[in-house]
């Protein structure tokens, strides 16, 4: 049998805690198999032997984009890669650092934290998920990702096959694990509106779901909010919880419900250096849409 060349793969990280890349590195029992299955050309946390000028079959990218420099790198990775996979909630939705996305007061918040500083390394910008700027083929959400879902995606892509990620919400697996329903016990649990695949990890430990896998394709956020209000949670608490990990997904899909009055569409490029994100065409229409990317608008 003719030897099929192994797919060339790169792992990259932008703004985040590196928890997703670490999840992969922590797969000690499977690590050799991973390195065996594919030809890893770049994985800085694993090896300093990186080849970042090569074409890749698959790029796995963690973290959100928070500087102009990162944006340039991301575009470079996209250009070199046949398939780009966002891994982790930061790459998929912007991460907790995007919890106030769409509020339009980023510069003010930035100054509050950092003061008047001169940016010497890179020009900062508000945290956005990868698909705000480049085409993302797959999003593997999670904070951090689940290693089995990563293996599933890796093996599928290595065989050139499409990846069907989990579509059911956390509640399904939570029932499989026969947990007592935390919502029914009066807790602020986001299980019904959150994508599953994590094996209901938090409810298994009696902790309510915080929504770190982002909303399901059909999250009924309106009903979830009503339900939680009936349980005497304040609108502010509920919205904050939904936005903590929901980031751009919440802004794009549920801005009205969450009372997010986007002064500027999320994908609006920063004015100074006028580097256009991919979605710039849409972003220019100031009031037109809370969904700066065409893709997001169709998601419902």
């Amino acid at each position: 049998m003719a030897e099929i060349p192994k797919p060339k793969v790169g792992f990259y990280g932008f703004t985040g805690c590196a928890g997703d890349l670490l999840t992969i590195l922590h797969c000690e029992d499977e690590l050799l198999d991973i390195f065996n299955a594919v030809d890893i050309r770049s994985f800085l946390m694993a090896s300093s032997d990186v080849h970042d000028d090569e074409e890749l079959d698959i790029a796995f990218v963690e973290g959100s984009i928070t500087t102009d420099h990162q944006l340039e790198s991301l575009k470079g990775i996209r250009k070199r890669s046949k398939v780009l996979v966002a891994i982790g909630s930061c790459a998929c939705f912007g991460g907790p650092q995007a919890a106030r996305l769409g509020c339009g007061d980023w510069e003010k918040r930035f100054k509050k934290v950092y003061g008047e500083v001169k940016h010497t390394v890179a020009e900062p910008r508000e945290s956005h998920p990868l698909d705000e700027y480049v085409k993302v083929d797959y999003c593997i959400p999670g904070c951090p990702i689940d290693k089995h879902q990563f293996f599933f995606a890796l093996t599928r892509l290595a065989k050139g096959m499409p990846v069907e990620l989990t579509t059911f919400p956390v509640c399904a697996e939570c029932k499989w694990n026969e947990n007592e329903c935390l919502l029914l016990k009066g807790e602020l649990c986001l299980g019904p509106v959150t994508a599953g695949g994590c094996n209901s990890r938090c409810p298994n430990h009696n902790l309510p779901c915080v929504g770190c896998w982002g909303p399901t394709s059909e999250a009924n956020v309106a009903s979830e909010i009503n339900l939680l209000k009936e349980r005497n949670f304040s609108a502010e608490e509920i919205v904050n919880k939904l936005r903590l990990f929901g980031g751009a997904a919440m802004v794009r899909r549920f801005a009205d419900l969450l009372g997010i009055k986007t002064e500027e569409p999320a994908g609006k490029p920063r004015q100074k250096k006028a580097r256009k994100p991919v979605a710039a065409g849409k972003a220019k229409k100031k009031t037109a849409s809370k969904s700066p990317k065409a893709k997001s608008g169709k998601k419902r």
């Binding site: 919400p169 509640c171 399904a172 029932k175 019904p192 009903s223 009503n226 339900l227």
Partner: peptide, 10 residues
């Protein structure tokens, strides 16, 4: 109202 969580089926 339905959260489409599928718990009823499970």
């Amino acid at each position: 109202k339905c959260l489409a969580c599928g718990a009823c089926s499970m």
